[in-house]
Write a protein that binds this DNA or RNA. Structure first.
Length: 185
DNA sequence: CCCTGATTCGC
DNA sequence: GCGAATCAGG
């Protein structure tokens, strides 16, 4: 598979949309995330401003090889990207360890909470909703919207291996029934 | 373990 | 130019 104009275009769009390299790779098909990242770099549009799911933070040490600091020239694309206010809708990361992390729902309100929650969930870009079905089985499968409706989709954020939901939806799904008393004996 | 992007370098 | 291997981090 080669990088046709359409594929490059889609790559650029999804990358600007905030999708991860592996998600884009899954959407394109027949490519690995490494291929996507490599192409992204070659196109000169690396380095996004987001800090979500677990990625860009600090650059690693330069070349450990004999090749010393051959710093790259600033591409015109970078300048343009930096100038853009970046109106990306990619604010979906509630930052689980952040503000709304430890909001334990009152146990008494479980029955009334269950119904409205899935509908009133966070926004996820359309491009990501489609790709989620392509991804592997370590993504959050919390349903959002009305099953059967055309705009129905799944959460899609990362879930720890084994668990079907991300941290946010896991806390909702598994409400402890601590109210109940053990009747072991 | 899973994931993320960044970089290098043989092809 | 391409992307697997590797790195560095969450």
């Amino acid at each position: 598979m080669s990088w046709t104009a359409e594929r490059v275009e889609l790559l650029t769009k999804l990358w600007a949309d905030g999708l991860s390299a592996s998600q884009i790779a899954g959407e394109l098909g027949n490519v690995t995330r490494n291929a996507v990242i490599g192409k992204v770099h070659r196109l000169g549009l690396s380095g996004r401003a987001k800090s979500g799911g677990g990625a860009t933070k600090t650059r690693k040490a330069p070349a450990p090889t004999a090749k010393a600091a051959t710093f790259t020239k600033p591409t015109p694309t970078e300048a343009v990207t930096a100038a853009i206010p970046t109106p990306t809708p990619r604010q979906i990361q509630p930052t689980v360890s952040g503000a709304n992390a430890l909001k334990v729902e009152p146990i008494e309100t479980i029955e009334t909470e269950i119904a409205p929650l899935p509908a009133a969930d966070i926004f996820i870009p359309v491009s990501e909703r489609a790709s989620i079905l392509t991804l592997n089985e370590r993504t959050c499968k919390w349903p959002i919207g009305d099953p059967g409706a055309e705009d129905f989709y799944f959460c899609g954020r990362q879930s720890d291996a084994g668990t079907p939901y991300c941290a946010h939806h896991r806390s909702i799904a598994y409400q402890p029934v601590s109210d109940r008393r053990r009747r072991a004996s």
